[in-house]
Design a binder for these strands. Sequence first.
RNA 1: GGGCGUUUAGCUCAGUUGGCUAGAGCACUGCCCUUACAAGGCAGGGGUCGGCGGUUCGAGUCCGUCAACGCCCACCA
Length: 844
Amino acid sequence: MTRRVPEKPALEGLESKWDQRWERERTYRFDRSKDRHEIFSIDTPPPTVSGSLHMGSVFGYVQTDAVARYQRMQGKEVFYPMGWDDNGLPTERRVQNYYGVRCDPTLPYDPAFVPPEQPVEPPISISRRNFVELCHGLTEEDEKVFEDLWRTLGLSVDWAQTYATIDTHCQRISQKAFLRNLARGEAYSQEAPVLWDVDFRTAVAQAELEDREKSAAYYRVAFHREESGPVYIETTRPELIAACVALVAHPDDERYLPLLGTSVSSPLFGVELPVLAHELAEPEKGSGIAMICTWGDTTDVTWWRELDLPTRPVIQHNGRLTEEVPSWILTESGRVAYERIGGLYPGQAQKVIIEMLGEAGDLDGEPRHITHPVKYYEKGDRPLEIVSSRQWYVRNGGRDPELRAQLLKRGLELDWIPEFMRVRYEHWVNGLSGDWLISRQRFFGVAVPVWYQVGPDGEVDHDHPILPGEDMLPIDPTSHVPPGYDESQRGAPDGFVGDPDIMDTWATSSLTPQIAGHWDDDPDLFHRVFPMDMRPQGPEIIRTWLFATLLRSHYEHDTLPWAHATINGWILDPDRKKMSKSRGNVVTPIPLIEEHGAEAVRYWACNGRPGSDTAVDFGVMRIGRRLAMKILNASRFVLGLSDDVAASEVTEALDRSMLASLRDVVVQATEAFDRFDYARALELVERSFWGWTDDYLELVKSRGYEGGRGAGSAHAALQVSLGAYLRLFAPFLPFVTEEVWSWWREGSVHRAPWPGPADFAGLEGDSTILTITGAVLSSVRKVKSDARASMAAEVASVSIFADTDSLLRLRQAEPDLKAAARAREVAYHEGEFAVETVLAPRDG
RNA sequence: GGGCGUUUAGCUCAGUUGGCUAGAGCACUGCCCUUACAAGGCAGGGGUCGGCGGUUCGAGUCCGUCAACGCCCACCA
């Protein structure tokens, strides 16, 4: 092959040049003919494409790519697909804002609908099908943006293996897995209190909750007794007094012992309520006695269930209090009072209630202002309410100690990188308080694939769902018809209805190993890649994605979905603050890559230790860019010296010394990579490389130029080492290493074998020769530097004091040392290590 | 309230099983346009390893405790 070393190598343009070449030459295409043990499979996180691109994605994906490239060079066939998470609420919300539309499922489909150029106010109401079409259209655009970013970054994914969590394939797998869960009793539906977002009008799961500190006030409210004075409770939600079903105190609380078993009547509404005892009532909290409502918080739900209390909800699914007066309010004054709050939102109702309580004299003292944690849907803007609703659940150990123990055991089987991340999983599993709620009252997602029979009386029978066969999947029960029925029977007596809900996005993305591996339609492929080797992901989705994937695999395959889970750290902004939109400190990757180059950004990402939080650091990126430039220039130097020389030509001691230390680096970097510690591998290689350029190259430069005795040895050693460095850097800096590789080698460096001890067979040497010679050279440089002389200044003599062994080693590198130091004479003396340098007269 | 992680030079970070006068890069200072590289090279200054206590011949490294920061979890009356 003719060598083509450019005169002035540059980094610009390498990204697109090599991305196109790799695509054309199918460099990263997965070869499915390989056996399982020859394959390294990665369960790639499908990014939420409707979200904004952020540095956290770049960070984690680049780290994974480094591991993928390493495994590929180790001879593994790497299964590295890419998915897009595009279903669910983030997409819906983005479509709503982007086009100015809202979904109204009651509207008919309009085939001619075209969204407005600009979003309009108020939003246009469109049918569910029109809405879903817009979702599909927009996510396709979003996916292109992501793919472009990944390509620019040089991710070595196989772009033939992509999926989107809303596509037909994913829908089929998602529904199939659900139906199997259902058949085995792992999934069930139930009418029960659920946490409810009143704006999105959907139930949300425990994993999607977050607490936010909100200010509130305790109101001290009087409940009345017939014989004696009032009982005071303290509440932050007096608007729920109408939903009150009992008062509760701790069974050991002597203050309230006489009250237990009696009844009180609620202020304003005059509803008779029992006073009960329960362990969860805290004597220190408030007045020590609490009102139980259906339902003000999750404790209410516990009390309601365990004390077998009646259900008296006043909050509706739309977030407002019911318009009509509840049936349990019997007094005329109570009815009048309720009419003043019916139809209001809780916040408005609270103001009215406080006013009425004040007028009635049932408010004791001034409100006590506090801040307390309030449960929110992580994507929501208003506090969650609790409403009764029929929902689908998957058992997750939250209510089953035996299953919980099995899942904890799975967590122990999994190799966590870093190890301490396992604790987060165990905390989550131990903290589960209920089963996994998977149904959502939304539009853009995978449908719950069931229908229900409608009785002759028009009642829907939720307990005996009609299920599709697996060969029918995917289905949309709101438009498809169950076997044995026709469309005219939809909603009719003795007919059927489709389940209107969709499944939570995690119910689909928890199946990414099955989706990417084509569990349903390509069992041959599936068995070659599953269980997968590696699951890379962020720490914040251990409780969702990791846990749910593990659960589904546990159910369906009775195995872990992957052997290793690598958890990347958190990304902080340059000031080490958490990046968030509200702070306005989000750093977006595209401009960063344009400014610093993909290699620089990759270098920064690979410097982040597995699992450690990392700040966006432009300084580190600049170092990465400098390193990439250095590789280009050093390679140009080495390859400009001579044509290919056989490795067996390496005869000089200094050359063998350099190769011996490089061999050690190779071994250590390999060990680090095998532990998924790419950052350690990079550090080792980088440090070695700078020593190579700064000392070794300088020492052999003139020998290499002059072409005399030993020149061939230098050339051969330089080529062996350059070949090794390029391959060692390839996982981190794929563009520049490929570029240099293409100057003198056939094929892609990314398919070249990872260097190992075999590369250095027959080239054994004493690594300390280079070390000590480098130290002497350094001393000489210092003298020149102190004398403000050029490094090219002539040296009259160098006197080296050292022990016998070191002197012996130094003598072997004497010609190189003399040349690099520009020294006329070198003298050796036994003694403590020291170097005496005498510069030659300047003009002599 | 519970748990996990972090705390080493002005900044960003290494420091593997306790064994060097504690390292690197950036920044800073000085010198050098040396035929791979001046968007470079060479050299230099700079740290009581968060505080306190303990184990040990020896602690940045192990144990205890406290503090700050970050993250996760927790039943919001």
